[in-house]
Write a protein that binds this DNA or RNA. Sequence first.
DNA 1: CGCTAAACGAGACGGTACGTCCTGTCTTGCA
DNA 2: TGCAAGACAGGACGTACCGTCTCGTTTAGCG
Lengths: 192, 192, 192, 192
Amino acid sequence: MDERTRQVGRPRSEDARLAVLRAVDDMLVEEGYAAMTMKGIAERAKVGRQTVYRWWSSKAEILLEASAADAARELAVAPGENAQDDVAAFLTALSEFLTRSDAGLAYRALLGEAQHDAKVAALLHGTDVLGDAARALIAQVEDRGALAPTAGGEREVRVAELVGPTLFRTLGGGAAWAPAEVAVLARRFLLG
Amino acid sequence: MDERTRQVGRPRSEDARLAVLRAVDDMLVEEGYAAMTMKGIAERAKVGRQTVYRWWSSKAEILLEASAADAARELAVAPGENAQDDVAAFLTALSEFLTRSDAGLAYRALLGEAQHDAKVAALLHGTDVLGDAARALIAQVEDRGALAPTAGGEREVRVAELVGPTLFRTLGGGAAWAPAEVAVLARRFLLG
Amino acid sequence: MDERTRQVGRPRSEDARLAVLRAVDDMLVEEGYAAMTMKGIAERAKVGRQTVYRWWSSKAEILLEASAADAARELAVAPGENAQDDVAAFLTALSEFLTRSDAGLAYRALLGEAQHDAKVAALLHGTDVLGDAARALIAQVEDRGALAPTAGGEREVRVAELVGPTLFRTLGGGAAWAPAEVAVLARRFLLG
Amino acid sequence: MDERTRQVGRPRSEDARLAVLRAVDDMLVEEGYAAMTMKGIAERAKVGRQTVYRWWSSKAEILLEASAADAARELAVAPGENAQDDVAAFLTALSEFLTRSDAGLAYRALLGEAQHDAKVAALLHGTDVLGDAARALIAQVEDRGALAPTAGGEREVRVAELVGPTLFRTLGGGAAWAPAEVAVLARRFLLG
DNA sequence: CGCTAAACGAGACGGTACGTCCTGTCTTGCA
DNA sequence: TGCAAGACAGGACGTACCGTCTCGTTTAGCG
């Protein structure tokens, strides 16, 4: 016997998996989260309904798998000339992500669903896309010495201060920040 | 002819209206937003289904009517000794509202639904509960001279800075702020 | 005290009564019996819903009132040259009535409804349009000496033999009789 | 490839089909045609609503499927001693069918519905239960030489003469024929 | 001329069936 | 065993009509 369980029966179809993920991506943009159904996803992906249920238990789970990687990539900020630039770049990326990106649309849909469904909330908590990105940026800025190092709850306050304003603006339906607004936010964040 | 249109036909039943609002209030707490259905609301309120549809077009609309007044009341802050106290009181109230109050639960459900449904987004935009409360608090603080007066987009940035961090913490499933954290947030807000 | 109860309050509106009867007549032809509703009748007649329910308890009752007189008139046969002609004239009238006349359409709708609803059956039994017309024709023919006089159950058999064949043909969706067929039927009826 | 289309997906459930037919049979007798609803049928048969709509488009269609075979069986007449007996036996069977049999009750309900709904009329026309039984009996009698052979329209007149009187009596709410009345009708029919 | 009272229109009320849609499960035959 | 297909029981959707009710208005006879 191998150390890994000997595979028996037909192996999972990678084609089917990708077809489902792609279908969810497309349908979210074309029809919106509410109009997306498990039935619709299966039909769009030309996949049996059971195949979808076999591997995912809700459309939120599929959507998370379909968009998590994109989200993390879009929120990563390369170090710039100074801390102020880094924070501004992060806020700009976050703002773009939440208002214009497809992955951001998925994130907003998931965050919305999480307010209705505890399972989705747990799922989303497990992969804290925005928090992780913010923590990375803050570590970067602290390493530069532009902010005093923090940890634990104190660090979480800083994360909330960094992400919160942009999130509030976005969820309320507001537009992305103007460059001048980003500058104000970044400057005040570094004052802390 | 009266200035008001002459009433014709049977007048709307206030009993039915209140029964529906009360049913929605109760069901949200007992069963959650997702489990709440138009059919269930009608049955719980002992009201015909058509009566619900006649006056509201979605459960979001009912929920908004049922909770808007409560929300505004819970977020009002009486002027305290100084600006720092006022801001801290507002952040505490906001934090409690979003994590513990029934009206806050309703607000979170609506904000969530707004991410899925443009109509709800518009509805929610029309009655900007959090923004209005924040603007009132900010005006109060500016009147005290603790912050330089702002207006327009500049003011909206400040609103986002005030409300955003708490909202981010809450929507992500976090607990209410500890008093020390509120103090930090309040102090840094007044630094701006 | 008068023999009739002294009238008090506003008297019944003849306008409303006629508007309802006319609406039912028109709607039966235009939309068919199934599509006709009490609500629709009231709206078409520009009459309150309660006014309809006040005077009639079902659309069948209205339809009966609206068509009974027409039906009786259309089935009356003036004595002709001989018994054969009279019977043929009756069968032709009956055939036309059932296949083409508006009143006949109403009769068929009522006869249909009577198969589903005992109240309508009783209502229809109370005003035996076809039977009455047939009995009148048979009496006329017997008076001429073309058939032996009958009464009671025996007479009812004869009524069924006169009316039945045409009714069967019609309800089954068949066309009106051709003149030659009427002649055959009339001749055989007089053979009895 | 087979001549029949290769079966794909889960096959139709015979259990569900029979449960629906049985429910309709029972409900017609217990509650009557008017009180029978698609919803009620599904619930009684413990079957999903969609399953009913998937295979039948109206309660009339279900009822026809549920009763057509019974009807044909109840109206078949085995050849007796002479033509008079055969006709009398048919009229007796028809009379019993229409006034007492469950299948006859179904037939009357369908004939009634056909007066309101063209689709049902077409459906009923497609399976002419009474006409087919009558044509069989007439052929039998003609083979005996008791009546001159007929065909086409002429034959249809004879069918109407055979079936019509009993149908008229029945639909008008009358009782089944007495034996003496059947004898009269049979004798006069053979006179034609 | 005012009073009483019933009929009138309008339309909201609690109920319930409609026919459609989606859910999550199941049952086929094929790969 | 996975897979596509599609039927299954269940239940919510939003609409329509049911028969009743509650308004303000109208129209008659009586005092």
